[in-house]
Simulated assay, not measured.
Amino acid sequence: MNKLIAAVAATLFAGAAFAQAPATTAAASADTKAEAKADAKVAKADAKANEKVAKAKADEKATDAKADAKNEKTHAKAHAKAEKKIAAAEKQEKKAEADAAKK
């Protein structure tokens, strides 16, 4: 009789232990899956943000290059115009000196 009671008690404890273990594992795996999904979302958002920053920096460099090129072109035009004015003024000065020498 004692053996029978001991066997029943052991079966109850063993059954209770096995019945609870998968529930804990399932809950833990569900939490782990949720955390993994959240981590994946955060990683994806970070990757997109980094991509946008890189694109913005590239756009900034392109814009700066265009502005520098435009500035160089404007400077060259202004320099050429100034040289023409200087040449015309020197020509006019030489003409005035030649006219003064004739008189």
Rank of each mutant, 00 (worst) to 15 (best):
N2V: 15
K3I: 05
L4F: 14
L4D: 12
A6N: 02
A7I: 08
A10I: 14
A10S: 12
F13R: 08
G15D: 03
G15H: 00
G15Y: 06
A16M: 06
A17W: 04
F18A: 03
F18N: 01
A19M: 04
A19D: 05
A21W: 07
P22R: 01
A23S: 07
A26E: 13
A26D: 12
A26K: 08
A28T: 08
T32N: 12
T32L: 07
K33N: 11
A34Q: 09
E35T: 12
E35R: 15
K37C: 03
D39G: 06
D39E: 15
A40W: 01
K41Q: 11
K41P: 01
K44L: 09
K44Y: 05
A47G: 07
K48D: 15
A49F: 03
N50H: 03
E51L: 04
E51Y: 06
K52R: 10
K52C: 03
A54P: 03
A56M: 00
K57S: 10
A58M: 04
A58W: 04
D59A: 07
E60T: 02
E60N: 06
K61E: 14
K61R: 11
K61S: 12
T63Y: 14
K66I: 15
K66M: 12
K66R: 11
A67Q: 11
D68V: 00
D68A: 10
K70S: 14
N71S: 15
N71F: 14
E72N: 07
K73R: 09
K73N: 03
K73E: 11
T74L: 00
H75R: 05
H75E: 03
A76F: 02
K77C: 00
K77Q: 12
K77E: 03
H79T: 14
H79L: 12
A80E: 14
A80S: 11
K81A: 08
K81S: 08
K81R: 15
K81P: 13
A82T: 03
I86N: 09
I86M: 13
A88K: 06
A89D: 00
A89V: 08
E90D: 12
E90H: 13
K91A: 15
K91E: 11
K91W: 15
Q92A: 13
E93N: 15
E97Y: 13
E97D: 15
A98E: 15
A98D: 11
D99V: 13
A100C: 06
A100P: 01
A100L: 11
A100K: 11
K102G: 05
